[in-house]
Simulated assay, not measured.
Amino acid sequence: MTGLIHPVILCGGSGTRLWPRSRPERPKPFLSLLGERSLFEATLARCTGARFAPPVVVAGAHHLDLAEDQGPPDMRIVVEPEGRNTAPAIALAAARLPADAIMLVCPSDHHIADTAAFHAAAEAAAALASEGHLVAFAITPDRPETGYGYIERGEPIDGGYRVARFVEKPDAARAREFLAAGTFAWNGGIFAFGAGAFLAELEHHRPAMAHAIRESVAQGSEEGRRFQPEATAFAAIKAESVDYAVMENTRRAAMVPVEMGWSDIGTWAALRAARQADAAGNVVRGKAELIECRNVMVDSDGPRVSCIGLDDVIVVVDGDEVLVARADGAQMVGKLGGASGR
């Protein structure tokens, strides 16, 4: 395969399930949750090197300063007039790239432990994309997870497989069936496709969205490294994910299996799993004392936290906000009034 891979980094969402650390004014992608770099900086670093073109970042106006502070000088930014989910965000970036450009679409807030495996999958996916396929990274599951969508493997093709079907988040019983079958993978939201091929599929399956994207980009304006699409045309778009709008409808969907230590860091429990634990499964960041505790995570930016006799509990202190939750209830943190800004 020749030509560069064009990273497209999506900075949408507010990360409410990681409240109180993640807040609207400084959401999850821009936090240093694992190591010294933020998740956004780590994503950009993975997409740097001889095979990669300068990144295109799609971000909302509220987070432009954060993105520019943490991003490289050669980064280009497409400013989302308002949030409309991943399909329009990707389409904006595609419309700003040459039709033959191979896009590597990455969420800005995921963790990948094995960069070499990520690069190998990116090469395989880009090769398939150069042949006209729309390619999903198919992440090998290690547990019957109910919080992710799945991809079923179809017939083999050179460098990967065709996609038999995309499956919505299953219940626990179906997730166990998927894991046992060995033909299902997690859909991590990382994709590769040609910019022109993606826009052609969008035109076929969501013509109104494609038209609005064309109008918004044609009437947009550029200032420095920022491109501002025209807001009125963009506002007419119905919010929809790339999975629903394109990937579940195209006949050219392919998948590249990969094991790369992936996590979407979607909850405090997921972050606990990605951090280094002690022999009792405890994870501590900040000042804390744990006595007879197991599988407890404490994350404090100031006050000392003392825990006795706890099991499978998350404790987070951020300024004047404190969260205490069982790890198996961590999915519900986004429902708290503070997390939603109420």
Rank of each mutant, 00 (worst) to 15 (best):
A233E: 07
L271V: 08
D171L: 14
A235R: 14
V256N: 04
A330M: 11
G286A: 02
Q219A: 14
G188Q: 04
F137H: 10
G60L: 02
L92V: 10
A87S: 11
L290P: 00
R23G: 05
I9K: 05
G147W: 11
F184D: 02
G334A: 13
A67K: 02
A195E: 06
R206Y: 00
F30Q: 07
R153F: 05
G149H: 13
N187H: 11
D318T: 10
E240N: 03
T16Y: 07
P170N: 13
A126P: 08
C307M: 11
G266P: 03
I291T: 11
E145P: 00
E223N: 09
L202T: 05
F178P: 01
A192S: 15
A327K: 12
G188M: 05
I265C: 12
R96P: 05
A127C: 09
V78F: 04
M247A: 11
T140D: 09
P156D: 07
A195K: 06
D243W: 04
D69E: 15
T2W: 03
L66E: 03
V258M: 02
P229I: 05
D299H: 14
Q228N: 04
R76G: 06
L179A: 10
G147R: 15
G188K: 05
A181L: 05
R17V: 13
R342G: 12
E248P: 00
L18G: 06
G15H: 09
H62R: 14
N249L: 11
G188T: 09
A121C: 12
R162K: 14
A253I: 03
R206L: 04
E223K: 11
L104R: 04
D328M: 14
P55M: 08
V105I: 15
E289L: 04
G83S: 13
T140W: 03
V324C: 10
R272D: 10
H110Q: 14
T2S: 14
E155H: 04
R17M: 13
P207T: 01
R226K: 09
M332V: 13
A235D: 06
G154Y: 07
G329C: 14
E41C: 04
E289C: 00
A330S: 15
A125V: 09
A180D: 14
I237S: 04
A233N: 09
L4A: 14
L134W: 03
R143G: 11
A45N: 06
L202G: 01
A200R: 10
A339V: 12
F227I: 02
C293Q: 02
V56D: 09
A127T: 15
S340H: 12
V305D: 03
F30W: 08
A277F: 03
A231N: 01
N187F: 01
L97F: 09
A175R: 02
N282L: 01
G281N: 01
T232A: 14
V305A: 02
P98H: 11
E201A: 12
A236T: 15
K287M: 05
S216T: 10
A212D: 08
Q276V: 13
R225Q: 10
R153I: 05
A122C: 13
R96K: 13
G49P: 07
A197N: 06
F184P: 01
Y150D: 05
M75L: 13
G159Q: 10
R162S: 07
G3N: 05
F166S: 02
A99N: 12
R37Q: 13
D158P: 00
